[in-house]
Design a protein around this nucleic acid. Structure first.
Lengths: 272, 272
DNA sequence: CGGAATGTTGAAGCCCTTCAAATCCTGTGG
DNA sequence: CCACAGGATTTGAAGGGCTTCAACATTCCG
């Protein structure tokens, strides 16, 4: 079920910045800059930059993980970070009492495992929500290369900073939004992540159960279900025939307007 | 109100690792290791390590900020990170609609501003909750030194990782705990932070209003107040004569037991 | 086809919010 | 030093949103 293809390259890194490795081009990955300098000239999305840098400078191990397969299991000692090349994964935290909580959904270019650097232990289970290609990098090697290659270091800091900023955004949503708006925000965030990677957003496919979404958003599965139904009645989303996990968003503007109006009601806006 | 004392040192850093700067020893700061090697021999708390590394290797600017003074204002371009030498600060996020939310409380050795690396803009107001000494470090200088000095790089990664892990902990609490337990958890976390720095925990002084605690924990100020009253009635905290912002925790074990029992009720524990 | 997992919907109840009023605390000016 | 104003805190009562419990519908897969 899991296919391994170890890429060696630590020697090259030690003796300098290494020679660009052969491009393993997935489907529709697009062009990439040919030198670090070019990266500043052509401002391409950061998620692509991370993958490009890893490919160029870092030794990594490539894995294929199929839907519902295990990318990382909680409890084992932390040695490697992962970055998603293809697919989508969910990270599930385990409480002391065994309860599970989805704490993150990740798409290509995103790093997994930053929070383990401090603890030295993987605290989350990570599952593939799709057929995934995962690149795993040893932390000790990563540290060495980051020190030697400024763009790598900056990309990593940027990625960690992004996660901090996003976690903070979620904290805000969890603290201030009622259930319906929280689900709407969830859909909006997911769509934004998809479209940033040129993935289709005309038809959303949720690869999570209502219960999982519930743990992610801090509410019960029944409330999630009711919120989806409510959003549908409002015409903000439209379920497809195939089932209640497939839907479309007729108007992105309307959906985000819905969230905004819950944060501060429209009657206050006229006062300003 | 704000006293500046610029410490130059970029030249020293460029030409080597510089000479240890004169120790500005706050009250009861304790000893610090005299060489990087000693750091591994004497496993002292990471918060102290960060301050030691900054002092040894990095050019920084020292500021005194008095209670309720501004450490950092939102909206300005990001150029510097801050680290707390003495005191306590709160970071307050501003929503688009102007609502404020406390998103972090920080004590000596903690870094402020990691989330701004990605955005390039300070997104939070940071206020002193006490008389503080703040060290500010230019990000560009920091990056250069981190690349040159492995222990600095690792300390920074560790610090960012810590914040990610802690944010995730809070997400869990916000999603699963009822109001009373959330307030209890808040008290426990704050006490743990204090005791990790050898600060007194026999008498807690809250430097936040009930409303601020409310935004931090995602509940109204009335609920915060009721929760404190409830915890007092249960004997888990005891308010002092001086006012409702000063209290003691008779039994740390009892308080954390209270939180644990809310996460999974005791009757289920007998089944296992 | 049938059973299990998933999803929807209703009804009752509880927790938290909202609104309101009273009390306590703090700092300021007389 | 005291009075007083304004903010902070507590507490009560009513209402609403979310959870819980329960029943039923739907989908998935052997």
């Amino acid at each position: 079920m899991i296919e391994l293809a170890v890429m060696t390259g630590a020697g090259a890194v030690k003796s300098g910045y290494g020679v660009p490795k052969r491009m393993h081009n997935g489907s529709g990955c697009g062009p990439r800059p040919d030198s670090p300098a070019a990266m500043h000239l052509r401002p391409e999305p950061r998620w692509r930059e991370s993958l490009g840098l890893v490919e160029r400078y870092l030794p990594f191990e490539r894995r294929l993980v199929h839907t519902d397969g295990v990318v990382q299991i909680a409890g084992v000692a932390f040695t490697s970070l992962h970055i998603i090349k293809v697919g989508a994964v969910k990270t599930v935290a385990l409480s002391a009492s065994g309860r599970e909580q989805v704490v993150g959904l990740h798409l290509p270019g995103e790093w997994i495992g930053f929070e383990c650097i401090a603890t030295g232990l993987h605290g989350c289970n990570v599952y593939a929500m799709d057929t995934c290609e995962i690149w795993s990098l040893r932390y000790d090697a990563l540290i060495r290369v980051a020190a030697a290659v400024p763009v790598v270091q900056q990309a990593l800091w940027h990625a960690m900073s992004c996660q901090l900023a996003r976690d903070r955004e979620w904290r805000f949503s969890l603290c201030t939004l009622p259930a319906d708006a929280r689900v709407a925000e969830f859909v909006l965030t997911w769509m934004a992540s998809l479209s940033a990677r040129d993935l289709r957003t005309d038809q959303i496919t949720l690869r999570l159960t209502r219960a999982e979404i519930g743990t992610y958003l801090g509410m019960t599965l029944e409330t999630v279900s009711r919120s989806f139904s409510h959003l549908e009645r409002c015409g903000l989303i439209r379920f497809e025939d195939k089932g209640r996990r497939y839907f479309a968003v007729p108007s992105l503007a309307a959906l985000s307007e819905f969230v905004r109006n819950t944060v501060d009601p429209p009657e206050r806006k006229t006062l300003q």
